[in-house]
Design a protein around this nucleic acid. Structure first.
Length: 500
DNA sequence: ATGTTC
């Protein structure tokens, strides 16, 4: 068992050996591994890891322990899961999915993560690669100057308290009404770009003060704004429904709720660390702080989490608007003429109340997805009408200089993963290690030699995000494709990327 | 991920 309090993630990951991990799991199929209930005391259900044998070798033993730890929480359904990109996180593994009964279960901030509603959106264009390549440096510069990036970066938008409340309550819908986009944008977001039930009175002044100047900023770390082109189509029919074809230029935005979400998570973790004692819930790791789903403490967290989720959707919407303006300036045509429609926007760090079939019966569960993307199949009422015949788009970002993937939610997701798929390529090297190993300037030169323009706030950002510090996104995506959770539709490659 | 250790 891992008691991860006071232990840094890097310390845990140094214990990694492949033999340790193989001894902890039992093979169920090519891509499914069980962590038996004997792994640690008090597991209520087994753990299940969706991973290929080759990716299993890169999973830290601590990640297996974290999956097992989650299975001890009250009301957990079926099994505690992790996707092929799983790695160590705060309490719950990143790549983790867990569903808890609406009455008997719990809600836990650790199951959502600090960057609440970190997510990805993809904007189509009708430009071809050949039209963009000659302009890529100017375009990337324009995007870098129009969309503030970096730790603590401040937005060009000076949000008032009233506007912040609107972002908390109405997410992307508010941003569109405020002039940052068109109606079709929020209609092409998961949950229409905002979830009901947010309550700004559950957001501290500190979280508000951090969030206000950052509404409309990219942030840092693995977040990015990237100009790409479609390199390969795997499924012609679904690609056509998604409006994608080979050679077409797309734009991907990967970011979240910035300091607001981080502070909301921090604030409510404090409350829930007390609550877990008051309700006498036994947890194997203090980072699994939680409360009964219907308790005041859990619901207060959930209402604040919804504010951060909506803020993140508003944030990505505002960035989309400035992205369109940047293209308009460089190409001298308006965004509508450039065909800059939003394909879709997905959340990969959020908890949601959903209906799922468990043991043959439909029931309501709080599905926690932390570094996992919803992947609802065709016919699901929550999939936008334009995609309902094929399934929802599942957007999987790569790391800097590596491919990203567009998939389509598929039937097996509802049978085996509570409607979830992976979210990207997990790190294999710490930021500190990466900074020692790589020099930003030479990574940048290598990328430019491959035709990829990079603009970052500092060379160290490029070193920390070097392509080699991440797992292969292709291998991760192949696992969910083979399992039938989400089907591969297209691969996109980077042309220009901005990073904080 | 994060005013990268309130």
């Amino acid at each position: 068992m891992v008691e991860s309090e006071d232990i840094t993630i890097e310390e845990l990951s140094t214990e990694n050996t492949r033999e340790d991990v193989k001894g902890m799991v039992r093979k169920l199929s090519e891509n499914e591994w069980e962590i038996p209930v004997e792994h640690i005391p008090n597991m209520r259900v087994p753990g299940r890891l969706f991973v290929s044998e080759s990716l299993l070798e890169g999973i830290e033993p601590g990640t297996i322990d974290q999956i097992a730890n989650v299975s001890t929480l009250p009301g957990i359904q079926k099994y505690s899961m992790a996707m092929p990109d799983a790695h160590l996180g705060y309490g719950f593994a990143i790549g983790g999915v867990a569903a808890f009964d609406v009455e008997e279960g719990i809600i836990s901030p650790g199951g959502v993560g600090f960057d609440i509603n970190c997510g990805v959106r993809l904007i189509r264009t009708n430009l071809q690669k050949e039209e963009v390549v000659p302009n890529i440096k100017r375009l990337t510069d324009e995007l870098f100057s129009n969309v503030p990036a970096g730790v603590g970066s401040k937005s060009r938008l000076r949000a008032s308290d009233k506007e912040l409340d609107s972002a908390f309550l109405e997410g992307a819908r508010w941003a569109v009404e405020a002039g940052y986009g068109v109606e079709a944008d929020f209609e092409h977001c998961e949950a229409n770009g905002y979830m009901e039930g947010a309550d700004p009175s559950q957001v501290s002044t500190k979280a508000r003060n951090r969030g206000k100047p950052q509404l409309g900023t990219l942030g840092s770390g693995n977040h990015f704004l990237e100009v790409q082109y479609v390199d390969k189509i795997y499924d012609q029919e679904i690609a056509s429904t998604f409006g994608l074809q080979e050679g077409q230029v797309t734009v991907m935005v990967h970011c979240g709720s910035r300091g607001a979400g981080h502070q909301i998570c921090t604030d409510h973790l404090k409350e829930l660390s007390q609550a877990v004692k008051n309700y006498k819930i036994e947890i194997p790791d203090k980072q699994l702080a939680c409360a009964p789903a219907q308790s005041k403490e859990a619901q207060n967290y959930f209402k604040a989490m919804l504010c951060a989720a909506n803020y993140a959707w508003a944030n990505r919407q505002i960035i989309t608007h400035w992205t369109r303006e940047s293209f308009e300036k460089v190409f001298g045509r308006d965004a509508d003429d450039l065909g800059m429609d939003l394909l879709y926007d997905v959340a990969h760090n959020v908890a949601k109340l959903e209906k799922h079939i468990v043991d043959g019966r439909k029931k309501e569960v709080y599905v926690h997805r932390k570094g996992a993307t919803r992947a609802f199949p065709s016919g699901h009422p929550e999939v936008p009408a334009v995609y309902r015949d094929v399934g929802q788009p599942v957007l999987i970002p790569g790391s800097m200089g590596t491919p990203s993937f567009i998939l389509c939610g598929s039937e097996e997701s509802m049978n085996i993963s509570f409607g979830s798929a992976c979210h990207g390529a997990g790190r294999v090297m710490s930021r500190a290690h990466a900074k020692k190993e790589f020099r930003g300037q030479s990574i940048k030169e290598n990328l430019e030699a491959r035709g990829i323009t990079v603009r970052a706030t500092h060379p160290s950002v490029i070193a920390e995000e070097a392509p080699d510090v991440y797992k292969s996104s292709s291998k991760v995506v192949n696992v969910v494709h083979e399992l039938g959770i989400a089907r591969k539709v297209a691969k996109v490659l980077p042309l220009g990327v901005t990073k904080g």
